[in-house]
Structure formats: structure tokens, C-alpha cells
Design a protein around this nucleic acid. Structure first.
Length: 308
RNA sequence: CGCGGGGUAGAGCAGCCUGGUAGCUCGCAAGGCUCAUAACCUUGAGGUCGUUGGUUCAAAUCCAACCCCCGCAA
């Protein structure tokens, strides 16, 4: 079976690696172009490209797919039987969707039709769900809308961050693909239409989404901390500097003002709209990641501050 | 040349502007208190102040270059 793999970040790279491991070697990998990363603006290849090159698989990095004749001709000439797409980062135009005989199989990080869109993993943590999963769908022209080939469920632990959940979902996605592809090709899989009326959407995450509103409950804020780790992180402003909260737990309420910083059993605590957030790790703009204890050693005036 | 913060005892920070051989909190060690303690009290060990050079009678502090860490932006 001849297939092409579409995917860009770590999530895609993990799936790609697993597929290769069991002998599903793609004809080519298509991912987003290299991007300038970090302070030095060094042009850095995406994870999927690095993985592909490790196995000497050719890589294509088109700037766009729509109206890209060169790319269109290339894939048409290649005549793949199938395409697998995971966190690619671009919409695949209708003309291209029809090229592989078996279409495009998309690995999506939620139990569709919940959380269609760009941030299913963050959204499920934010909402405090106890369970999420992977859904394989056959791509159609609408976003995350196609019929379902299979699902795999995963429990969300209380300390799950975007990072850890993303890794688990990638693993689960790869396993599900490996199990499903042969049956699908053999025509043994019945495609199931999604119940579109129940669809929910998760938009792209912006830096600003991580800004903490201290009127919210400690539970909500604690979920933000996990959902937005490591980016954009849950953050607030202190002394005109960004203060990232990287790890925290919730605690019961105290008779304090909303947003007030205090010591609870000598731990760094912040009163929220409802309940208390006990901060474990944080990072001030320009500084390193510190434990709450270290941070307090050097910032005595932090206790007593009131966040808005 | 994208913008900015920082490198001072094991850790986190102050001191730098207005030069005169370093201080705070924690940790560590010893002793004490206590039925006991991660609590409290006392004492102590531990620092070429990122590197190199310059100015000066004198540099953590002023000047120059370089190295390293970090935030933003992408």
C-alpha cells in the first residue's frame, strides 16, 4: 500500500514513528515549512520532518496547498492509495482529497463530534472532562466533519497537562491506525456519520487565552494551568511583568480577598473567586522556572499582593 | 544587527544610580529548648561578586569587549 503522511508537530512525529516501526513506510511526508525559532531566529525544521529524514523519507513543505499546481501535480503523479493526516496545520483542498483511492484518514485528538478544530486537547482539559480520546475519520471538505472509522478512549488523570495528554493521544492514535488501516483497506470498516447536531468546536489558542482572571474558581484556573502547559501557560501580571504559573493545585477557601497572595501552611497560595490556588512552580518574566519556595525566598514582598 | 531582563555563598534575591574588600531569606553544620518535631532560640561554616581588559589611591559598584541563562516577538 502506497501512502503519504501529512503532519507537522511532535504529535504527528510520534504517530509517524510508530507507523514506520510496524512497517508502514510512507512514500513521502508533507509538513509545514521550517520556521525561525527562538531568540536567534534559527530556521528549525518541524518534528515530523526530523523524523522523516531519520528514515530517509522524502519531505515536502509547501507554503500552501490551495492553487498549488506543483504540489497538485506531484501528488497526482504519485498516485497514493491512501493519505494519513495528523495535526498537519493546513486545510487540504477538495481537489487533493480525492486523489488517494482510499481518501485521507485524519487522526483527531478528541472523541468527535466533540471539540472539532484546532485545540481539542487543551479544551478537554479546560472543561474538566474525565475522558477523551482519538477519533479516526475520513476527511471531507468540512473541518473534522467526515465519517468515523474508529475511536479509542483515554482517561484524563487529575494531573494531566497538555504535554502529557498529547503524548498519550499520539500513542493511542498510532495504535488505532495500525489496527484500523488493514480492515479499512479490506473494506471491513463501516463508516459512521457523526451526529453533527452535537458537534462542539475548539478554536485556536492565543497567548491572551492564558491570562488568568482571578474571579474564576480555583478549579477553573488550575485546569488552565494544565491545559496551557507548556504554551501559552496560565499567566498573570505582577509588577508589570508576566508571571507564569506552571504547576498548582486547588485548596479549600479561606477568608481572604479575591486575588490576595498569602501563606497557607507556609505554601504560596492565592485566593480565587471560589477556593484557593496553591502554587507549586512559577516563572517571572526574564527569570528561570522556580519552585514556589525558592521564589518566595527572593521575593518577600510577593505575599500580600492582590491580583485583579 | 528584532525588543527586553539577568549572571553576587548550595538555592532564591538585595547591594550597583551617589566607588571605600558584601547582606537578607532558605538550606547546611553544631549546640540548646522540648515528650517530640519539618516548630522555636543560639552559634558557625561557606563568596576569585560570569570572563578579560580599562579608569582610579581604591571597583560587585564606572567604561569596553566577550561568554552564558531567561522572557517577549516569530
Amino acid at each position: 500500500m502506497k501512502y503519504v503522511f501529512f503532519g507537522t508537530p511532535e504529535f504527528a512525529a510520534t504517530i509517524l514513528e510508530k507507523l514506520i516501526d510496524v512497517g508502514y513506510i510512507p512514500e513521502a511526508v508533507v509538513c509545514n515549512p521550517d520556521e525561525p525559532i527562538g531568540r536567534k531566529q534559527i530556521l528549525t525544521p518541524p518534528s515530523a520532518k526530523i523524523m522523516a529524514e531519520k528514515f530517509n523519507i522524502s519531505v515536502f513543505q509547501p507554503l500552501k496547498l490551495r492553487d498549488n499546481l506543483e504540489f497538485f501535480d506531484w501528488i497526482k503523479k504519485l498516485k497514493p492509495d491512501l493519505a494519513i493526516i495528523a495535526a498537519y496545520g493546513k486545510i487540504v483542498p477538495k481537489e487533493i482529497l480525492g486523489i488517494p483511492i482510499y481518501g485521507f484518514i485524519n487522526v483527531h485528538g478528541s472523541l468527535l463530534p466533540a471539540y472539532r478544530g484546532a485545540s481539542p486537547i487543551q479544551s478537554t482539559i479546560l472543561n474538566g472532562d474525565e475522558e477523551t480520546g482519538i477519533t479516526l475519520i475520513k476527511l471531507d471538505e468540512k473541518m473534522d466533519h467526515g465519517p468515523v472509522l474508529g475511536k479509542s478512549e483515554i482517561r484524563i488523570s487529575k494531573s494531566e497537562t497538555y504535554d502529557t495528554l498529547s503524548a498519550k493521544l499520539a500513542e493511542a492514535g498510532a495504535e488505532l491506525l495500525i489496527k484500523t488501516i488493514p480492515d479499512y483497506i479490506a473494506g471491513k470498516i463501516k463508516l459512521t456519520e457523526q451526529s453533527h447536531a452535537e458537534a462542539t468546536y475548539a478554536g485556536i489558542i492565543k497567548k491572551e487565552d492564558g491570562k488568568i482572571n482571578w474571579l474564576k474558581s480555583a478549579e477553573e484556573i488550575e485546569r488552565m494551568v494544565r491545559a496551557f502547559y507548556p504554551w501559552p501557560t496560565a499567566w498573570t501580571i505582577w509588577n508589570e511583568k508576566t508571571l507564569k504559573i506552571l504547576e498548582a493545585i486547588t485548596s479549600s477557601g479561606d477568608n481572604k480577598k479575591t486575588g490576595e497572595v498569602f501563606l497557607k501552611n507556609s505554601e504560596l497560595a492565592i485566593k480565587c473567586g471560589v477556593g484557593v490556588l496553591v502554587v507549586k512552580k512559577l516563572q517571572l518574566e526574564g527569570g528561570k522556572i522556580l519552585t514556589a519556595k525558592d521564589f518566595l525566598n527572593g521575593h518577600k514582598n510577593f505575599v500580600g499582593n492582590i491580583f485583579s
